[in-house]
């Protein structure tokens, strides 16, 4: 990867779900691949347990190298059971025939693999240390 000029005092990763914009956090490390200064939130550890990567390089490295893949939720049983009120109280307002598992199939708006990966990447984190999380 060609060397780029990075700004040293801020995280150089892009943030944002709908609109891409600069992340304004303090950098905690440099990407082991492209040397980009990155904050803790945008840092991923490679399978070797040592190398830290930015989000962009993580995606380029692929799930295999970072231990993250699209199968994280595949066997997750949590939402395949009945919702307390869901099927009876709420779903009638929208679609009597739908259930959560049915609605996941063949929907062009469903998460892509990359979307799923980015959500998992942030969700598998440093529990009980960040007092701003929810």
């Amino acid at each position: 990867m060609p060397k780029k000029e990075w700004q040293p005092d801020i995280c150089n990763e892009k943030a944002g779900f709908l609109f891409s914009h600069a992340c304004d956090r303090q950098p905690a490390a440099n990407c082991g691949n492209c040397d980009k200064p990155i904050c803790k939130k945008h840092t991923t550890r490679r399978r070797d347990g040592v190398t830290l990567l930015c989000t962009t390089c993580t995606k380029e490295a692929g799930a295999e190298d970072t231990g993250r893949g699209s199968s994280y939720y595949d066997d997750d049983p949590y939402y395949y059971g009945s919702h307390y009120y869901g099927d009876h109280y709420y779903d009638d307002r929208y679609d009597r025939r739908s259930s959560y598992s049915e609605s996941r199939r063949n929907d062009p708006r469903d998460f892509t693999e990359a979307d799923s990966e980015s959500l998992v990447a942030e969700a598998d984190g440093d529990f009980e240390n960040d007092m701003s999380e929810s």
Binding site: R109, S118, A123, E133
Partner: peptide
Amino acid sequence: CPRSRLYDRQDRRLRRQEKVL
């Protein structure tokens, strides 16, 4: 639009007809 959270799972809460990416 589902947001990423450490504990909450917004992508799971939203239904197909509510969700955009």
